[in-house]
Simulated assay, not measured.
Amino acid sequence: MRAVTLLLVAGCALTGGALISAVWAAAPAATPPPPAQTLKTAASFVSIKDPTARSVALFTEAGKVIQSPRCLNCHPVQRAPTQGDDRHPHNPPMVAGQGGHGPAGLPCAACHGPANVATWGQDIQSIPGDAKWALAPAEMAWQGKSLGAICAQIKDPARNGGRGLAQLHEHLASDHLVGWAWNPGAGRQPAPGTQAAFGELVQAWIDTGAKCPKA
């Protein structure tokens, strides 16, 4: 199966997906993803009376998502995506290129379609996809940073795509590509909780002053 998986990946890189399209069409049903990890609700933090302490606690809980492999793999500082729960280098080798959509001649869309697709492989059980699949912009790269540093970065309009806090919440709570983290395809651990629960944590964090953990 490993040889088949490598053939699929190589074929995708060489032909822009033409070779693997036929194989995908006959692929078996994808293995259900592993059970998602838990995420505390925003309501579970109301017992923390100090707003600053509660805000920090809320973001720390939301950080379980932000620092999960599903997010970190697409927010690398080195401008090259990583893969898997162990965040190993992307195979085949890949870089962001101009605009975060891959280098000239091998865009992300050569292998990543608008939705996840099952494969025959065991090492690679599915190839992830979304209509907006791309690497996060350089100013939004945070793999390897502390949660406090990520917090400061994520609420800074100069480094979050020009978003105010309300727009940041909308992005994290509703964006379909962000939501992929909870539907990552077979062979990948989903982000903790649900996007709805994550969005509630982010909103409660904003409502308590959007305070950050110490770096």
Results as ranks from 00 to 15, higher is better:
83 Q>Y: 08
7 L>R: 09
101 H>M: 12
121 G>Q: 08
34 P>N: 12
49 K>N: 12
169 H>K: 07
130 D>H: 14
89 P>F: 09
85 D>P: 03
36 A>S: 13
213 P>C: 06
193 G>M: 05
159 R>T: 14
109 A>N: 09
28 P>V: 12
144 G>D: 10
175 D>A: 13
41 T>M: 13
73 N>M: 11
114 P>G: 02
97 G>T: 03
21 S>P: 00
122 Q>G: 07
187 G>F: 07
27 A>D: 08
206 I>M: 10
102 G>D: 14
94 M>I: 06
84 G>L: 01
181 A>H: 05
56 V>K: 08
178 V>A: 13
127 I>F: 07
112 H>D: 03
159 R>H: 08
131 A>H: 08
186 A>F: 00
172 L>E: 06
156 D>C: 02
173 A>N: 05
132 K>V: 02
203 Q>A: 13
10 A>M: 05
146 S>V: 00
28 P>Q: 01
34 P>M: 12
168 L>H: 14
41 T>A: 12
176 H>Q: 15
68 S>L: 06
166 A>R: 07
175 D>T: 12
104 A>K: 13
122 Q>D: 14
29 A>Y: 02
187 G>A: 07
77 V>W: 08
25 A>Y: 04
30 A>M: 08
21 S>K: 13
31 T>H: 07
119 T>Q: 06
192 P>Y: 11
70 R>C: 14
22 A>S: 15
145 K>M: 02
88 H>Y: 10
164 G>T: 15
176 H>C: 00
128 P>N: 02
126 S>K: 03
126 S>E: 04
41 T>R: 15
133 W>R: 14
112 H>I: 02
142 W>T: 01
23 V>Y: 05
105 G>L: 03
50 D>I: 01
28 P>N: 02
197 A>K: 15
123 D>S: 03
124 I>A: 06
143 Q>N: 14
18 A>E: 11
71 C>R: 00
66 I>M: 12
140 M>V: 00
74 C>R: 02
205 W>G: 09
207 D>I: 01
58 L>D: 00
116 N>F: 01
185 G>C: 04
118 A>D: 08
124 I>P: 00
61 E>W: 02
208 T>D: 14
99 G>W: 14
161 G>Q: 11
52 T>P: 10
172 L>Y: 06
137 P>L: 04
72 L>V: 00
106 L>F: 15
208 T>L: 11
123 D>R: 02
96 A>Y: 06
145 K>L: 01
210 A>P: 00
137 P>W: 13
91 N>P: 02
60 T>V: 13
156 D>F: 03
141 A>T: 08
55 S>T: 07
118 A>M: 05
24 W>Q: 09
170 E>K: 11
75 H>K: 05
170 E>A: 14
170 E>Q: 13
151 C>P: 02
201 L>N: 10
162 G>Q: 12
175 D>Y: 11
62 A>T: 07
165 L>R: 07
177 L>G: 08
117 V>D: 04
163 R>W: 01
108 C>N: 09
87 R>I: 04
126 S>T: 05
163 R>A: 07
88 H>E: 06
122 Q>C: 03
25 A>G: 01
32 P>L: 09
161 G>F: 03
149 A>V: 08
23 V>D: 00
119 T>P: 09
119 T>G: 00
143 Q>G: 03
142 W>H: 06
28 P>K: 03
59 F>S: 07
111 C>Q: 10
39 L>Q: 09
17 G>W: 04
134 A>S: 08
